[in-house]
Design a protein around this nucleic acid. Structure first.
Lengths: 208, 208
DNA sequence: TGTACATCAGTGAACGCGCGTTCACTGATGTAC
DNA sequence: TGTACATCAGTGAACGCGCGTTCACTGATGTAC
């Protein structure tokens, strides 16, 4: 259990982060003003600077929280898939199905990926933030690669592919699918792309 | 031949757009100031406002130019592939190879996709800009879908997939691949992902 | 249990800088007659 | 060929607003003895 009484877990602080994340995904970090956040949160500017020493620290907190949340969601999906399945390939395919369903169940289009958003505003952020994003993507790669390696042990690939690239493909398709969904205003695109990824992984290990 | 003496094709104007595009892809639109652009372009602020009535018009011009350039690049790749090939499937596969090689030959990581950048700063832009991005993505979808439909006529798919989704996958993987390349500081990721897309399309129509 | 002090979670007012925008103006080139 | 006018591609100075940041302060709660 997390210590919710610590400064990092303060309710007001979490509220600011919620509002900031939503605003950043819609307008970008530079265009998200502290004024608008405190107006929405119902505190004063000094209240904001009590929680974050400057705007840069808000960026760090946003990225930290986003990465942690993302990792937890992914771990949960794989855990649930593993409960339903012994076989590594079918476990992987079930996980992708669960993932696609999860994104399809969102009320509107996916709110967006903070890593993608920040990567297009790179120069605004400290090295710390860039390293967090880097580690976040690396975690995804490792998690998928580990699974794919286990699959490959049981199912020798029918299509010769670099498994690390195949691992990266998941993340790339999610980020790309979110962008397509947003630009086309069609929330179905993201889950569709995840299911296509699933089709490809199946073909790699089981053949067409 | 374009009329280079018209206002739209003015050299100074093009120079501003070049500088703005590079800056926007690094820091986002809101954080790209007119001051910095005119300093780099060597003109005064009034000179900028001679070419663009306000900052919003700069956004429109950037997106128009980017979409047109992108369409031209894609058309050129398919044209070159068609010259080398009669068969629609092999023409498509050659085109993807050319595309991957093109991104691999860039001196550093891909500078970025303006559509992706703008989609994460959506609220900053007019409906006109959003519509341009929408039409840009639609053009890619139609271009790929047309090609895939022609392939499917000769090669009945071995893996049952929605061809429109398969068309969208190309764009999604490019956008996602660019993000991965940037965040991981590894320019090899983007061409790798394009080649994986190529592998998938081949498997869909030829089997594993 | 009472008192002293420390920490938490903020308030309120002020500051200066950079931003996008406006306006009156200008020298060089192009066009009409 | 000369003159009048229009357009092109800007200049220079000013303006006001919003932004992130700072600083001195405060009431409520927690802790030590």
């Amino acid at each position: 259990m997390l210590d919710m009484s610590s400064r990092k877990g303060s309710l007001t602080r979490e509220r600011i982060l919620d509002l900031a994340e939503a605003a950043v995904l819609e307008k970008g970090f530079a265009a998200t003003s502290i004024d608008e956040l405190i107006a929405a949160a119902g505190i004063t500017k000094s209240g904001f600077f009590y929680h974050f020493k400057d705007k840069g620290e808000l960026a760090v907190a946003l990225m930290e929280r986003y990465i942690a949340h993302n990792d937890a969601v992914l771990a949960d999906i794989f855990r649930r898939a593993d409960e339903l399945n012994e076989d590594p390939l079918h476990g992987f395919l079930v996980a992708m199905k669960l993932f696609a369903e999860m994104t399809a169940d969102l009320p509107s289009t996916h709110p967006g990926c903070l890593v993608a958003s920040f990567c297009y505003q790179d120069r605004l952020f400290s090295q710390e933030v860039r390293d967090l994003a880097h580690r976040g993507v690396l975690t995804w790669r490792k998690l998928f690669l580990e699974r794919l390696n286990r699959v490959a042990e049981h199912y020798p690939p029918k299509i010769p592919v670099d498994l690390e690239a195949l691992a990266d493909m998941a993340n790339a398709l999610v980020d790309g699918g979110i962008i397509q969904s947003r630009v086309m205003r069609d929330k179905a695109i993201l889950p569709q792309q995840i299911m296509l990824y699933r089709d490809f992984v199946r073909a790699v290990f089981l053949g067409a």
